[in-house]
Amino acid sequence: MADPWQNEYDFAVQVARAAGAVIRKAGEEEIKVQTKSSTVDLVTKTDERVEKIIIGSLKEGFGDGTHCFIGEESVSKGEPVILTDKPTWIIDPVDGTTNFVHGFPFVAVSIAFAVNKELEFGVVYSCLEDKMYKARKGKGAFCDDEQIQVSDVKDIHKSIIISEHGTDRSVEKVTKIFSTMQKILCIPVHGLRGSGTAATNMCLVASGAVEAFFEIGIHLWDIAAGVVIVREAGGLVLDVDGGPFDLMSRRMMSANNNVIAQRIIKEIEIFPVERDDAPVQKK
């Protein structure tokens, strides 16, 4: 029996690599000559350009109208987030835009593919590192062509944990975020880290470099591809309260095993965020 999604998977890898080349070129040729006041425009233009390349290539490859798309830039322009049973691409064209502006070497293209609301595969191209992470449901996870797996550490004191402080600078949320980080650091763990891109963070869990990554306030396009990669590398993905993972909830804990996950979950101070599938407010 023919593999139903192999062509889509192979195409996603090609498109992610091509998109990454566009990002690298923009970083090398344009950021150096930008003033502080114009870097936001550059990020927006690069985001839009890369998303158009990805979606345009996918429509050309598989036929316009046959697949659905959820993209960060499309949603930012007011399109609702609706995940149906149809084949759906979930795209973050430039994950790590602040890193991109500063030349901090972690910027990723994230492409996931879902059918019947189930994630089938994920591709994360860390374009400045030139590392291609990829995974298909039931077929393992890889960095380039080498299979990867999560670490076997179960002692929380020997673990490295990743989290991010997000973009919301309200005092209430920042206080909870840093209180959580303080409690985790004082368990104590070996260290706390953050690459500045959720997609890359999840790949670091999958490859065994760190034991866990959690965040409240991320979006489905940040983590959809990473969810498949972590699971296929032998890890698990949960809600930050320990319950089942919900792609739309904007709350996620990924870890190498449940022992590490549950210990970290005890320390997380949860705060409310609006779901990705919340109704779009009409202006």
Score class of each variant (00 low, 15 high):
32 K>C: 12
251 R>E: 04
270 I>E: 01
220 L>D: 04
126 S>E: 10
84 T>S: 03
106 F>D: 08
213 F>E: 08
232 E>N: 03
160 I>P: 01
103 G>I: 03
268 I>F: 03
82 I>M: 11
82 I>H: 09
95 D>F: 00
15 V>F: 05
200 T>N: 10
55 I>T: 15
60 E>S: 15
43 V>A: 13
141 A>G: 14
167 T>C: 09
61 G>A: 14
241 D>R: 02
101 V>T: 11
114 A>C: 06
182 Q>I: 15
231 R>Q: 13
8 E>M: 01
263 R>E: 00
283 K>L: 04
212 A>C: 14
259 V>F: 07
76 S>F: 07
208 G>H: 11
11 F>E: 12
61 G>R: 02
180 T>S: 02
160 I>N: 13
273 V>E: 08
247 L>T: 04
137 K>F: 13
121 F>I: 08
163 S>M: 12
221 W>Y: 13
277 D>E: 11
184 I>G: 12
91 I>S: 01
126 S>T: 04
47 D>F: 07
226 G>C: 06
15 V>S: 06
141 A>V: 09
4 P>T: 13
115 V>K: 13
248 M>G: 06
139 K>M: 03
148 I>A: 09
140 G>L: 03
39 T>Y: 15
141 A>K: 08
70 I>Q: 04
276 D>H: 03
110 S>M: 03
215 E>W: 12
126 S>Y: 08
81 V>H: 06
54 I>P: 05
52 K>T: 13
213 F>G: 07
22 V>F: 12
281 Q>M: 10
262 Q>N: 04
124 V>G: 00
72 E>S: 08
82 I>E: 15
218 I>R: 04
205 V>I: 12
211 E>G: 13
198 A>L: 15
111 I>C: 01
5 W>Y: 11
71 G>E: 02
220 L>C: 04
85 D>F: 03
206 A>D: 08
60 E>T: 14
159 S>K: 02
149 Q>H: 07
275 R>K: 10
142 F>I: 06
148 I>L: 13
35 T>C: 08
208 G>N: 10
200 T>I: 15
47 D>R: 10
209 A>M: 09
225 A>W: 08
232 E>F: 08
161 I>P: 00
228 V>P: 04
169 R>K: 10
78 G>H: 11
214 F>S: 06
141 A>W: 12
87 P>L: 09
225 A>G: 12
48 E>N: 06
80 P>H: 01
201 N>Q: 10
246 D>Y: 00
97 T>M: 09
98 T>G: 06
186 C>S: 15
257 N>R: 07
31 I>W: 11
154 K>L: 05
187 I>P: 03
29 E>C: 02
116 N>K: 03
265 I>G: 03
148 I>C: 10
70 I>F: 05
13 V>N: 14
254 S>L: 01
34 Q>S: 15
144 D>R: 04
176 K>I: 08
230 V>S: 01
132 M>T: 13
54 I>E: 07
